[in-house]
Write a protein that binds this DNA or RNA. Structure first.
Lengths: 186, 186
DNA sequence: TTTCGTCGGAACGGTTGCGTTCCACCGCGA
DNA sequence: TCGCGGTGGAACGCAACCGTTCCGACGAAA
């Protein structure tokens, strides 16, 4: 099969997803907007959910490694910069919002994004473990809740409220998150 | 018009919304599940968006006043308890997720929930202002980002990840959030 | 040059929900 | 007792999209 057709269908799919939402997404329009026929689409994927699952699991969000900066706060800033790079994209914002709502009804989608969740979890865990190894954090820390803080504030600002995040905001965020995590021990 | 029919249609609407999502929501099914005819529904509302807007703006989320407890952390705990009461409901979780995605496409919905956003913002602002008045926080604090922290972690845990939040978690959250906010000044 | 697979495009029957209209029924106030 | 308005329910024509099938065109490999 011709890969340029596959690519056109792929990007049309996400454009359309961001525009009208997953439930209202029509494969007929996707094919049309890609300048392709429906046959070409159905030859590759059997249904909307199958197409979404396949594409989601293939999207190569190349995450750079986060080098050890020597302090929790600087590590957090690097992590937040990396997270912001992803969450700033308009299409990713829309698709993420839609995806979260859809996952509750379509378990196949959750399976498809599991690799991403695990990659994120691993990066989060790395930052915390480094801080513990440095002695900045006690081993008794509530890692789960600390992990929540590392993501939630930026997600809230960029995706939920649709707000902005400049470098100063990110620095404040890193400082506040470090303070919060330091208070997570019992 | 008979109010019991209106009530039946209202609760069927939200049930259906939580079950299939806003885009896939069919007014035909809503009427059927309410044990009503389509005519009764269309006599009250002219469309799906109109119905959602009207119902959302009428839902009486009676928020209790938050008494001054004497400290930022205790105020935060009271706020989080109040927020958890709302975010724990299954239907509210689903509808909220769906609503956030839909707002990007349907401005009328944003207008409908604006009163809630403002009520929440006011409560958040009150807690911070009290802490400033007490001298717990400097006046130079980044209120916007502090407000983000008050909501985002619990929202992330309960709504996004579908996790739980017991009393101990809430106490940890209050402690961490207080620490974060205290670090929000520049 | 022939062959073979994919291409874009059009059409198929079937399903679903839209918004509207009509119907017989029922309960309440005059 | 009558009349009227709201009721549940069925049906209407219309539009969109589903998943499938068929077509002639095109291009690369043999």
């Amino acid at each position: 099969m011709q890969s340029d057709v596959t690519d056109a269908l792929t990007s049309a799919f996400f454009e359309e997803w961001a525009r009208v939402g997953f439930a209202a997404l029509s494969l007929e329009r996707v094919a049309k907007n890609a300048g392709a026929g429906k046959a070409a689409l159905y030859r590759r994927w059997s249904s909307k959910v199958a197409m979404a699952s396949d594409l989601l699991s293939k999207v190569g969000l190349t995450l750079f490694e986060l080098p050890d900066t020597g302090s929790l706060e600087a590590d957090l800033l690097a992590f937040l910069l990396s997270l912001r790079r992803v969450l700033r994209h308009r299409i990713i914002q829309r698709v993420t919002l839609d995806l979260l709502a859809e996952i509750a009804r379509e378990p196949a989608l959750e399976r498809a994004i599991r690799p991403f969740q695990e990659a994120r979890r691993k990066r989060v865990k790395t930052v915390i473990d480094r801080a513990i190894a440095r002695g900045e954090l006690p081993m008794t820390i509530d890692r789960e809740t600390a992990a929540d803080f590392m993501v939630s504030a930026l997600y809230w600002r960029l995706v939920v409220t649709g707000g902005r995040s400049d470098r100063r905001h990110l620095k404040t965020l890193a400082r506040m998150t470090a303070a919060a995590i330091s208070a997570a021990s019992r």
